Computed example of a mutant assay.
Amino acid sequence: MGNWVNKEPPPPMVLVPPLFDFPPLAARTRMLESSYNLLFGKLALKCLFEDYFEEARHFSTRIMLKPIDDPHVDLIATVSCPVDYKPEEKIVGNALFRWQSDLDDSHTFMDLFVSNSDRILQMRSSAYYPKYGLGAFGIFPLLLKKRVSSEDYGVLGLRYGSGNLSFGATFMPLSLKDECPKSAWLVSKMGRLTAGVQYEPEYGIKDGAKYKNLRNWSCAIGYGVGSSSPLSPSFNFGLELNKSSQFIASFYQHVVVQRRVKNPLEEDEIVGITNYIDFGFELKTRVDDAKISNDIPESTLQVAASWQANKNLLLKGKVGPLSSTVSLAFKSWWKPSFTFNISGAYSRLIVMD
């Protein structure tokens, strides 16, 4: 007689889909930015408030090409125009060619940006050495219709970064009329607290007067919990005094949840799926005299949330003082992959007495 072997059923499993955009396109050029402008949850909030929210009655398409023979390079082409196109309106098109030294490290790269509007041709480059924490970067407009500002002649930057400290400065080497530096920043992390200060001289004539003018300084403090991995929940809360004229309070939370599913296309042992939920708000309040800076609104608040139901569907929405927007995105993971999204906006008219 043979022995009957009872085969145990496979254990229940929960699907963990990849994120829609990780890392986001904005993170590929983070070494060209001040660390002060990226920490305190600013990069995550920027992606939450801007990605997949198109301008009303506008159509845009983006194509990313990456050759199989050389994955170190890629090309992103973008075209946008109004839906009800008129001959006097312009179709905006641009292309970005990028070379990256290491596939797993986006900090060292060079790219060329071409557009049918200003800036017509621009080169950007960054080199970062993680062993020493030192880096250098530059932005050089090569072809412009007209050079008006000092930045049109190029910007160079130096930086140092480690797990707990980041500082750096930017300069305009080909412009003699502006004093150095163009900007400088210092950010330090102590446990879950992050504090930073940034100097951007815009007010004052003499060098000493610029350093003493508080409107050229910004400071921020933030509290963060969680890891940088998108598969883990995270929480960020920040307070900022921007140029002594605007107070900003922001909050961002990334939540990873699991829900039960019964999908006939999946195996029987698949009992659940992981979802990603993001929520954020940003409150900006004016704290200086309205006569000093008229370009700053008195107070504004925007709230946004997103829900990634699976690897193919993403639902986003945001509410502001003047409009509300909802966006639905679909992404295929075939080769070549593509993403399609549609957004709708509702605007509110505010009458001032």
Rank of each mutant, 00 (worst) to 15 (best):
Y252W: 15
V257K: 11
V271H: 04
G280I: 05
H254V: 06
S250P: 07
V256P: 04
N263R: 11
I248V: 15
I277P: 05
F247D: 00
V256K: 08
K284V: 00
G280F: 03
A249W: 02
G280P: 06
R260C: 04
G280D: 07
E282D: 04
A249M: 11
T274C: 06
L265F: 13
V255T: 12
P264R: 11
Y252H: 15
V256M: 08
E282M: 10
T274Y: 07
V256G: 07
N275W: 06
E267T: 13
L283K: 10
N275V: 08
R259C: 05
F279D: 03
E267H: 08
S245N: 08
F251A: 14
G272D: 02
K243N: 12
K262H: 05
V261F: 07
E269G: 00
I248F: 06
V255D: 09
S250W: 04
P264M: 12
K262A: 06
S250Y: 05
N242W: 13
P264V: 12
S245H: 10
P264D: 11
Q258C: 07
N263F: 04
S250A: 15
N263I: 10
N275C: 15
S250F: 04
T285Q: 08
E282Q: 14
L283D: 10
K284Q: 03
Y276L: 08
E269A: 02
F281K: 01
N275Y: 02
V257A: 12
I270Y: 07
R259G: 10
Q253T: 14
D278T: 09
K243F: 05
T274I: 07
I248R: 14
A249H: 03
V257M: 08
